[in-house]
């Protein structure tokens, strides 16, 4: 028996090659087009009118785009920080301890990943409509639709994603390491600080970058729960399309694309750091 896979031959092999190329074209042609036309001087999207940086300039000059970008960044950073802490705690609880309702909690934590965005958006909208007044009355807070509701919504779905990523990392970590630390006179907190955290850090970083990407990209949920003055960049772009597509959208999209690619690249690097640390 040969250990290598059966090598395809002749026309079959050629078809496989074509298939591969088609997939790549399908994936990347729109992205390439987007990037190319973001430098097009023509006002009509899809018509090449010579090279220009005009749209990027307009993007930067427009108060509305700059504001929405800044909104997006603030929301992404804050919701990521909070969901990383909560998601990691949930992951630790589920992976290291058994308690009443463990399975229910486990299943519920996956829900935000599974249910459609629109459903989640409507749920959250209802929730904020019903309960912000109550919460504000009870706790004396000043929650209103806008920044707080968007951040809370993003935390709500990001906790799930963070905890899934961190859990995978904890599951791969030997639980005896914590025991070994405590055997070597570490308190529970010290064992966590000096052994658990460094071990699961790549997972926390990866989960955080994923959360940030999701927060920066979200349109549906954000659009439902946003309030006056809190338009995020993707929501803004979506709004622009309704007024008619201009190459400005292309430029904004390229900026967002760059941001996403950077975050994904960083999370891959974090992932690589983890495998290097293991071998």
């Amino acid at each position: 028996m040969s250990s290598t896979a059966v090598e395809p031959r002749g026309w079959f092999k050629a078809l496989l090659h074509v298939n591969g190329w088609l997939v790549y074209i399908f994936f990347y042609a729109p992205i390439i087009l987007l990037v190319v036309f973001s430098f097009s001087a023509s006002r009509n999207v899809g018509v090449w009118g010579g090279f220009t940086f005009e749209w990027y300039g307009e993007f930067w000059d427009s108060q509305a785009t700059r504001d929405s970008l800044w909104n997006s960044v603030q929301i992404a950073v804050l919701s990521t920080l909070i969901s990383v802490v909560l998601g990691t705690m949930a992951a630790l609880a589920l992976e290291r301890f058994t308690f009443r309702g463990h399975r229910v909690f486990d299943a519920l934590l996956y829900l935000p990943i599974i249910i459609p965005d629109v459903t989640m958006a409507v749920m959250l909208l209802l929730f904020f409509a019903q309960f912000f007044d109550v919460i504000n009355a009870v706790f004396g807070t000043d929650l209103r639709k806008g920044f707080s509701s968007i951040v809370l919504s993003h935390i709500a779905f990001n906790i799930s994603f963070v905890s899934v990523v961190v859990r995978a990392r904890i599951a791969g970590m030997e639980s005896r390491l914590e025991e070994a630390a405590m055997d070597l006179y570490a308190t529970r907190w010290q064992a966590f600080r000096y052994v658990t955290v460094p071990q699961i850090l790549p997972g926390i970083l990866g989960g955080g970058l994923l959360a940030m990407t999701l927060s920066l990209d979200d349109v549906v949920i954000t659009q439902f729960v946003t309030g006056p003055g809190w338009t995020t960049l993707p929501v803004y772009v979506f709004g622009l399309i309704r007024k008619g597509v201009t190459p400005l959208i292309n430029a904004v999209s390229v900026v967002m694309l760059l941001g996403s690619v950077t975050l994904v690249a960083l999370s891959i690097l974090a992932d690589r750091a983890r495998s290097v640390g293991d071998t």
């Binding site: 030997e174 070994a180 006179y185 570490a186 071990q199």
Partner: peptide
């Protein structure tokens, strides 16, 4: 008593060395 309060130390099966 928790392990960190005992005058004993352990060599674990598969050693459990801290990889980082």
């Amino acid at each position: 008593l928790p392990p960190n309060k005992r005058p004993v130390n352990t060599v674990f099966q598969n050693y459990a060395l801290f990889p980082h």
